[in-house]
Design a protein around this nucleic acid. Structure first.
Lengths: 153, 153
DNA sequence: ATAAATATGTAGCCTTAGATACAATTGAAT
DNA sequence: ATTCAATTGTATCTAAGGCTACATATTTAT
């Protein structure tokens, strides 16, 4: 069985390749973002439900997030361990101070992203859809740029 | 222990709340995106490494993606089952036709997102960083808007 | 007051995605 | 030809985040 050399003496194509360190850092941040996305989605949903209904119940969260109540239950328990929410068995779920703060930030960012996409001519529906995924990866610098452009069209 | 009514007869605040169906759909898509992000990141990295070095080895992928070789190994096996790559034990990893196609799309989208962010005045570094997370959530409609605005400044 | 419906909780299973520790293979140098 | 370092593979652990099935509370309706 013929074997390929570890590194061909002559590179097939001389494409410039950024040093892996930077690249790896970007992927790591992207993964880290992913890990906090859930928390953000939940606190945002809890804030909305609390605003609209006076409290956030497990079933309502499940419906809203499109998962079963079991998933909500387990995640809420984790969020409580992390200090974002307060709840007791068979009771509604309320945000802690930290949770409210996080929810505020998320809501503002979400609305900015949606408004920015809308300003580019994206439809309401798609803007909401894309924002849901995009918002978690928008750095402060990029968010600031969005806000700046929304003010000066 | 006092108990809260399931639904307070009078809503504390009359905030309009989109029907959960749409919201749930958005979250579901966002989660589905997450599931294919990995595949996209890998085929993109494999394409880059193949271009630069002639082949993609496990260690290089690991360095580039910022994970251990074990994670790469397992993921590559999954990508092979999914038909995106071809490889054999102790050999380099090559893209299949489907993998090359996916890599092309990802690369184009990645570059568009970076260019668009750059055009907003975002720094090179942050543009790359944010794009890494954002690109996976940009719908065709939004991508088209980005391209349109890049042509007409 | 009791029964039914709804809501919540628990047990257990699957997949993805990270890790360490150790084993086996390969490529290169002596 | 043998050794040695690097690469790759395997076993096993952890945690998040889905799920179904079933058990327990709670709320509502009769």
């Amino acid at each position: 069985m013929p074997r390929l050399a570890r590194k061909p003496s002559v590179a097939v194509r001389a494409a410039p390749l950024r040093p892996p360190a930077q690249s790896a850092e970007n992927f790591r941040r992207s993964r880290r973002d992913r890990a906090v996305e859930t928390a953000q989605d939940y606190v945002e949903a809890i804030a909305d439900l609390t605003g609209a209904l006076g409290e956030a119940r497990v079933v309502d969260l499940a419906r809203r997030l499109g998962v079963t109540h079991v998933t909500v239950n387990r995640t809420v328990a984790r969020l409580q361990r992390a200090g974002y929410v307060n709840t007791q068995p068979y009771q509604a779920i309320f945000l802690s101070a930290a949770g409210r703060k996080l929810a505020e930030e998320c809501k503002r960012r979400h609305e900015t992203v949606v408004a920015f996409l809308r300003s580019l001519g994206i439809s309401e529906k798609v803007a909401e859809l894309d924002a849901e995924g995009i918002e978690h990866h928008v750095s402060p610098e990029t968010l600031a740029a969005f806000e700046r452009l929304l003010k000066k069209p």
